[in-house]
Structure formats: structure tokens, C-alpha cells
Design a binder for these strands. Structure first.
Lengths: 236, 236
DNA sequence: GCAAAAACTATTGTCAACAATATTGTTGAC
DNA sequence: GTCAACAATATTGTTGACAATAGTTTTTGC
């Protein structure tokens, strides 16, 4: 039994809290930790989340764990069956495609808004990064660096879009597909195709062509989806 | 002070629960009640939601109210300030426009998926209803009936799209803008323009032209948004 | 009479014990 | 040997009491 999935990231003070400073964000901290661990599959799909166990591992009362689990349920990261407990949601292929349908239109909206909201020049640095360094990272097989670069791209766009509701929805989707995105990335030929598509999107943004940028971004996600469809047995 | 906003819809058994049947959905019931009351502004924006008060009004322990408020916060219907309590979220114009941006692409996706998922003929009845009876309702000024018709249209499309994530997102948006949608409807000329647009969408769906249906639905929502922009001082 | 401090009140946040329910293990009969 | 009923255990669900915090009023010093 994998009981050591849990274990706090370094909990130095189980008995007493830090006496001085603000520690009001504790509950949120806990939730955030669980979210990322589920998103990265450090806690894998299908894992049982026992309240008592978690409470002990995190050194917090069970009520707080309970609250966190409730929040995770609302975000769709865990499923709670009455009197049976919570398990990490397992996504089947059909659900993944449905998520991608939604993601496609939301990411499309996101680049459109971003293009409209900030001056065209502000995309220059990202464009150059994607035309140069990112290309090299791929050739050297440094997928971690590439992923980091892609994440930065995504975050910049989301920030520029400046739409809190959209941000929340994309975050909610992202934490469900994070692992999947990385798995698609290592499919044969996917990374370089993706990179070309990202560059096309960025070029449109650089020109200030919001409509075209949206269209290209949507095409990009549909293309990722097609890869997933073709190689599904290797990914899942 | 409007303390009688609350008061349960008819709580006949405060001391003991129904002895026999399933009543597990209690907690969910409470949440649902609060959601609809906030969505319809029966509980108006800015209203303070006191846990103790709610607990007494609903005849449930405070912990359950607390849980419900937590859920409402996650859905963005209330804002919780630590140690200060929860107030119903008040939307300003900027936020409303941001919501409409998201709604536009999601409803667009929704009609596209719906068109792809079910046979073309299944839209025939709705199309006829919109070309005939709905028109009459408008002419007779029966906005309640018209609204009900529109709701049915929306629900059919959402159901046909068969995408739980999308459904949830649209529901979440809808409960924030429900009142607003009705206010837009009574703007001069809006209803008839809207009806024409809905018919155009339905015609495209009837033809099985998913792409065009999506485009038309998006145009429809952008048009609603423009009305809102023009008449904003009358609506808010 | 005004301002600042202190006591008070109202409200939310935390917790640990208790109850209800589901699962697992054990016993007995056929 | 297998199945069913029953007992034991583990896990979640519920509740009320207590602690902490923010807002409000009163008091006191100038």
C-alpha cells in the first residue's frame, strides 16, 4: 500500500504554529498543496484519500482536510462518495476529448483578448524566444526547459487577457490535463509541429491580428487533440 | 434591515427528519436553494450572509451553512472576507463584459457540438416554435413565456452538446447573469432582434451546418453585449 | 468637546468527541 | 467447500462547545 504518497513538504512545527507572523493562509496552503500533487499525479488517479490519514500526514485537524476535500470535489479533482470517501478522479478518453473541446475555445478567446489588450510590440520577445532558443531546446531534447518556456507563454497570454473568470476556468482545466500535455509533447514529431504552430500564433499577435491569432490557437489545440487521438494507446 | 430574505421554503420538520425515505440530498438541497435565490436576486447583491442567521432560518446546524457558503464562494456567488463574513457578489460592468466574452465562446462551442451530436431533424420542432409561437408571445408582450421558451432552447442545446464540463461552466455563468439576461430582454427592440438571431442559429443547426451555427450564436451574444453596452445606464 | 484607548459585542474560525454507515473478517450451517 | 448471516473494525458524517478576530460603543484624559 502506498501510504507515503502524502507526507508534508517539510513541516517543522506540528505542535505549535509560528507565533509571530501572519499564517492565515494555512487552509489555502493545504488546498494548494493537494491540488498540485494531484495535478502532477504525485497522488495518482484512483488513489483513496482518507481523511484521518491526510490529517495526520499534514498535522492539521481533520475538519480542515474535510474542507479541502470538499473544495477539490467542486473543482472536479476528486470524487466523493457518501460514507465511502474520496478518490482522485480518473479521466477516461471521452472526458479528455470533452475537456479539449472546451480548452480549444477558451485558449482561443484568451489569445484574442491578449492581442487586443496589450501593444503588439510586447510579444516581440516571446516571438524571438520561440524562433530561437525554444527551437534549440527541442533539438537538444531538453523538454523540461521547453515545457517551462511554453508555460511562460501561456501565463503571459492569460495575464494579458486580464479576465479573471477565464483565468480561473483555464487553470481549472490545466490542472486536470497538466500531465497529459507533457505526454503529448513526447509523441513523435509533436513538439516541433507544436512549436511551429505557437510561432504562427505569436506572429499573428505581433501583427495585432486578434482574429487570426484566435483561429491559429484553436487550430493548434485541435492539432494536439488529433495527436492524442492517433496515439491514444501510448498516452493512456 | 431585511432579515426576512431567508426563511425556508416550507420546513415542516425542524426537530426530526423524515424517518423513512432517502434524505441524503439535504446538504445539496440547501446549496441549491441558496444558489437559485442569489441567482434570482431574491437575495440581492451586497446582502450579508450571516452563518448563525442562516442556520436558524433553515433549521440546520451552522456547520452545514458554512460548508454551503464555502461552496458558493468557490462558484463566485459570494465573497468571503476572513472573520467578517460573506456577502453576495456584486458585479460591476467590467466584470459583466468579461463574463460575456467567455459566454460567447462557450455558447458557440455548445451549439457546434449540439449540431454535430444529434440528427438535424431533431431541431425541427424548436425551429418551428421560434418561427411561430415565440413570435406571437413577443407581440403579446408575454415575456415570461418567451423567457421560458428561450430557456428550453438553451437547455436542449446544452443537453445535446453532452459535455459535462461545458454544462457546468455555462451553468456557473448563467446563475451569475440570469437577472441581467432578463433585463436585456426588455430593452427596446432587443427581443425581436434576438429572436431573429436565434432563428438563424436554429436554421443552421437544422441544416447541420455546425460551423455556421457556432458563428451565428457567437454573433448573437456579441449583439446582446452591444445592447448592454449601449443601454448600460438603464440596466444597471 | 474631541480624540484615543479600552471594554464589549457580534461574528466567524477551530476543534475534538460522538453518531452513523460501509467494509471486512469470522463463524456456522448446509 | 461454499454461502449466508453476524460481529468487528474502519471510515466518514454531524454536532455543539470553545477560541479568535473584527467592529462598536463607552469611557477617560486632555
Amino acid at each position: 500500500m502506498p501510504t507515503k504518497i502524502l507526507a508534508m513538504p517539510r513541516r517543522t512545527k506540528p505542535p505549535k504554529r509560528a507565533p509571530g507572523g501572519a499564517r492565515a493562509g494555512r487552509g489555502l496552503d493545504l488546498l494548494q498543496t493537494l491540488r498540485t500533487r494531484i495535478a502532477t499525479q504525485e497522488i495518482p488517479p484512483g488513489a483513496k484519500l482518507r481523511e484521518h490519514e491526510l490529517a495526520e500526514a499534514f498535522g492539521v485537524p481533520r475538519a480542515r482536510i474535510r474542507q479541502a476535500l470538499f473544495a477539490l470535489e467542486q473543482r472536479g479533482l476528486v470524487e466523493r462518495i457518501p460514507n465511502r470517501g474520496a478518490v482522485v478522479t480518473r479521466l477516461d478518453l471521452a472526458q479528455i476529448f470533452r475537456i479539449y473541446d472546451v480548452r480549444e475555445v477558451l485558449e482561443g478567446l484568451c489569445v484574442r483578448l491578449a492581442t487586443q489588450n496589450v501593444p503588439n510590440e510586447s510579444w516581440q520577445d516571446l516571438l524571438e524566444k520561440f524562433q530561437g532558443p525554444m527551437q534549440e531546446m527541442l533539438q537538444q531534447g531538453d523538454l523540461d526547459a521547453y515545457t517551462a518556456g511554453y508555460d511562460a507563454f501561456r501565463r503571459r497570454i492569460i495575464e494579458a487577457a486580464a479576465n479573471p473568470l477565464l483565468t480561473e476556468m483555464l487553470d481549472s482545466i490545466y490542472e486536470k490535463t497538466q500531465v497529459l500535455i507533457r505526454r503529448i509533447l513526447i509523441l513523435p514529431g509533436r513538439a516541433s509541429v507544436g512549436l511551429r504552430e505557437h510561432i504562427a500564433v505569436l506572429e499573428a499577435m505581433r501583427r495585432g491580428d486578434a482574429g487570426e491569432a484566435e483561429r491559429l490557437r484553436r487550430a493548434n489545440l485541435r492539432s494536439a487533440r488529433e495527436y492524442l487521438e492517433r496515439y491514444q494507446k501510448y498516452v493512456l
